[in-house]
Write a protein that binds this DNA or RNA. Structure first.
Length: 798
DNA sequence: AATCCGGTTCTTTTT
DNA sequence: GAACCGGATT
């Protein structure tokens, strides 16, 4: 049907109203918001407002549906309505807003028809929060704004029985997985040197990422010895996992894909449900995730993926940059929109990032720009040692704080975790408060893993791995041999270990171990029964009590045990928090949430500290001032990336990610020599530094080169046989003369003025390795412990 | 069962 | 240089 004159007029007014709603976005962003139908690739450069685009795109879909594009009048609308809308464009009175919005809606989507998939909990939470603010709690909670894994778990919880799993399945993390694999390698009596558990895990992981089942894997790989054995291991691993009723992280995706592929009715259910599919960080998806999203979007074909090929840094985890590079081939009629305007960094920083990433060949091509002209130059500083590099960083931070910056304005990023050590000790020497941003610290503690093992077994008694972990923790006289016998019995009777344990008295083979085992079995049964009546936190308390775990720790009463007790109580507060927050709290729900949770998910801690983290974990974050340390060839780019251009390009992307974290000021630091793996290594500055246009840099490199040359010349004249070593010694002598010569000695009672901490009084002085450890009570900032040598740069007696 | 020793290994790691 | 693991030792 051809649009009538009325249709045309109405559609154009409606378009104007809708555009007005999104008037705060730039043209490209708005294009992405309005392109609701069909496959869409949004290439979103760093800091280009991609989350904003995702949110507003969803808002547009929910509020206006096809309103922007439809050539027809809104169904049921009258001439009066048109007049009303036209008035509203001219003078948008707030009281008319509701009706105006309604008149612009042409088959808007229901919230449950939208799925937005992210990689991290943090990103998912941000989406949920912002959607809640925009469309209200009720609608927002119906939208599936989840991580890949949460999304898949929801699908699996409903239908996993079709795959022969039980609904109470357990989730294994990387450590659990490693345990299983190591046991299998031993069971097959394979050489643990050749079949390194981590390598095997990697192979199996890659297979799952690519949706290769054990059977296919075995067919493809049987000809070769090594891969043939990997195939055996994969097959056994799968069997073991099934017996334990357990899934690993890769399974969560792969099994979901299998479920959808093998069950047309389930697939159809989701394809009908999800009119709109959105995927964030698309450059980090693996093959399985690509298949999953295209299955989900297979009904309406409304798939919008957002990502940045230049920020793909997880190839080693199975991500294939191909997904984003070939999106247009994989989805017919796909549109691509580039977001290149950056709202985060200064022009200087963006020019550096652009200059660097231009050296990559395998990319779509983008150029970041900003209206924010200028910005101060990037500081490039080469030190002689890692210690002076760290001290340089500490000094810049203290200067900054003295000028009024907060500690949390600064972040230190490094390629490799070991680099944090030197910086940490410099921070400690200078009393700089810092926090290391790390994955699952809390959850990797033994006592916490024990607690979760108990809970998992209560939920899923097939979980033999966890059962074996706790059966004799705390010690209850169940030795390794007894467990072994029980396992053999389980195999003979074709049942699970838990059943043997709970009927241990019935097996004479168990001998003296039987009684203890039975007692443990009864205890676990009691806890399992409690689930019917008790709340989660009550169950947890009972578990601490009945298992004797708490008592065992209390009896020990040393530092270690006390901290373990504290951690166990900390977990209790997690449980209470979950109970208060969850709609329908359950053990399974809690365990699932915790399995997918990392320490880094904690709400951005309000405390004002410097943050330190790897460049990888910095993705998605931003800071006013960023230090990239260890910018040395061999370290960054890593010597491992020397082999292939592909790897080098990934390193360069990582550098690009790191640079674009900075909003105002970027520091690049490196050291001439560095103690690593027990020996001193000498390194050239990173080749990436040369890829940054020189005019953007304020560098001490040339100065140092001149200095070194002069020294060299001098030595040639006076000591012709000088060695490299000597030249280093003189360089460091020079350095230390700057810092040590002017060090005043401090005494108790001295009053001092510190650049960052203000006025204070020295309350204690301890000599320490040719230096002094000072304790200073600052009037405003409390008591700090500082090393005299480094502190004297920022402090004088008054 | 706990503790010591010695050998080995050492990117990055959203879930 | 440090951390982690496995085997041997008490």
């Amino acid at each position: 049907m051809k649009p009538t004159k009325f249709d045309i007029k109405f559609a154009s007014v409606r378009k104007a109203v809708i555009e007005q709603v999104f008037s705060r976005m730039n043209d490209r962003q708005r294009e992405a918001v309005f392109q609701t139908e069909g496959p869409l690739l949004v290439l979103a450069g760093a800091g280009s407002g991609k989350t904003t685009v995702l949110i507003h795109r969803i808002i547009n879909i929910l509020r206006f549906g096809h309103g922007y594009d439809s050539p027809y009048a809104t169904p049921g609308a009258t001439m009066e309505d048109l007049a009303f809308l036209a008035d509203y464009t001219a003078d948008p009175k707030p009281e008319n807003q509701a009706r105006a919005m309604e008149l612009c809606a042409v088959s808007p989507a229901k919230p449950w028809e939208v799925v937005a998939i992210t990689f991290t909990n943090k990103a998912a939470r941000e989406l949920q929060d912002r959607l809640t603010r925009a469309v209200g709690e009720a609608d927002a909670s119906a939208i599936w704004a989840y991580t890949f894994h949460t999304c898949c778990l929801r699908i699996l919880r409903r239908d996993i029985e079709r795959l022969g799993y039980n609904r109470t399945f357990t989730i294994y993390d990387e450590d659990d997985k490693k345990r299983v694999i190591t046991d299998l390698i031993r069971r097959l009596k394979l050489d643990e040197k050749i079949f390194d558990a981590r390598k095997v895990m990697g192979e199996i992981s890659r297979a799952k990422d690519n949706l290769i089942t054990p059977r296919t894997f075995a067919l493809e790989q049987r000809s070769e010895f090594y891969m043939g054995r990997i195939a055996d291991l994969y097959t056994l691993y799968e069997k073991e996992m099934r017996e334990n009723n357990a899934l690993d992280f890769d399974d969560i995706i792969m099994k979901t894909v299998q479920l959808l592929q093998d069950n047309p009715d389930i697939l159809e259910h989701y394809q009908r449900k999800f009119r709109y599919v959105l995927v964030d960080e698309y450059q980090d998806t693996n093959h399985a995730q690509y298949v999953l999203t295209s299955l989900l979007a297979g009904g309406y074909q409304n798939i919008c993926v957002v990502g940045d090929d230049d920020q793909s840094i997880y190839k080693f985890r199975g991500a294939t940059i191909t997904n984003i590079l070939e999106f247009e081939k994989q989805f017919k009629n796909a549109r691509t929109i580039r977001l290149e305007q950056n709202y985060r960094s200064t022009n200087t920083i963006l020019d550096a990032a652009n200059g660097l990433i231009r050296n990559n060949v395998n990319r779509k091509g983008k150029e970041l720009w900003t209206k924010q002209e200028g910005g101060s130059k990037i500081k490039l500083h080469r030190s002689d040692t890692q210690e002076s590099e760290a001290q340089y960083i500490a000094a810049r931070i203290l200067e900054g704080v003295a000028k009024g910056c907060k500690w949390s304005d600064f972040a230190i990023l490094y390629r490799n975790n070991v680099l944090s050590n030197a910086v940490e000790s410099a921070f400690r020497r200078n009393s700089i408060p810092y926090r290391i941003y790390k994955g699952r610290d809390f959850f990797s503690r033994a006592e916490i893993r024990d607690m979760f093992a108990y809970l998992w077994v209560i939920e899923n008694p097939s979980d033999t791995l966890r059962l074996k972990r706790i059966i004799n923790v705390p010690a209850r006289k169940i030795g390794a041999r007894s467990v072994e016998i029980a396992e053999e019995l389980a195999a003979q009777h074709n049942t699970m270990l838990y059943d043997i344990v709970s009927h241990a008295d019935a097996y004479s083979e168990l001998g003296r171990g039987a009684a203890a085992m039975k007692r443990f079995g009864d205890m676990m049964q009691e806890l399992r029964d409690m689930q019917q009546t008790a709340s989660l936190s009550e169950l947890y308390d009972a578990m601490l009590d009945l298992s004797g775990y708490q008592e065992a720790l209390e009896n020990k009463n040393d530092m270690e045990s006390r901290s373990r007790l504290e951690n166990i109580m900390e977990l209790k507060s997690n449980i209470v928090e979950y109970e208060n927050k969850a709609e329908d709290p359950s053990l399974a729900g809690f365990l699932e949430e915790m399995a997918l949770y990392t320490d880094a998910d904690q709400d951005e801690e309000e405390d004002d500290t410097v943050l330190m983290m790897t460049m990888h974990s910095a993705k998605g974050l931003e800071f006013p001032t960023v230090f990239l340390c260890g910018m040395e060839d061999g370290l960054f780019p890593s010597f491992r990336a020397d082999e292939s251009d592909e790897d080098l390009e990934e390193e360069r992307r990582l550098c690009y990610v790191a640079i674009t974290r900075a909003k105002q000021q970027l520091y690049l630091t490196c050291a001439e020599r560095r103690l690593m793996y027990g020996q001193t290594r000498y390194a050239r500055p990173s080749r990436f530094l040369q890829e940054i246009p020189a005019e953007l840099l304020d560098s001490n490199l040339t100065e140092r080169a001149r200095q070194a040359e002069a020294e060299q010349a001098q030595k040639k004249a006076y000591r012709p046989r000088s060695t490299v070593n000597q030249s280093y010694r003189s360089a460091s002598a020079l350095q230390s003369s700057m810092t040590t010569s002017s060090v005043p000695t401090f005494a108790c009672g001295d009053r001092v003025m510190h650049k960052a901490f203000g006025e204070g009084m020295i309350t204690s002085v301890k000599p320490m390795g040719g230096d002094q450890l000072l304790e200073i009570a600052f009037t405003a900032k409390g008591t700090k412990r500082l090393m005299a040598k480094s502190a004297s740069q920022f402090m004088h007696k008054i």
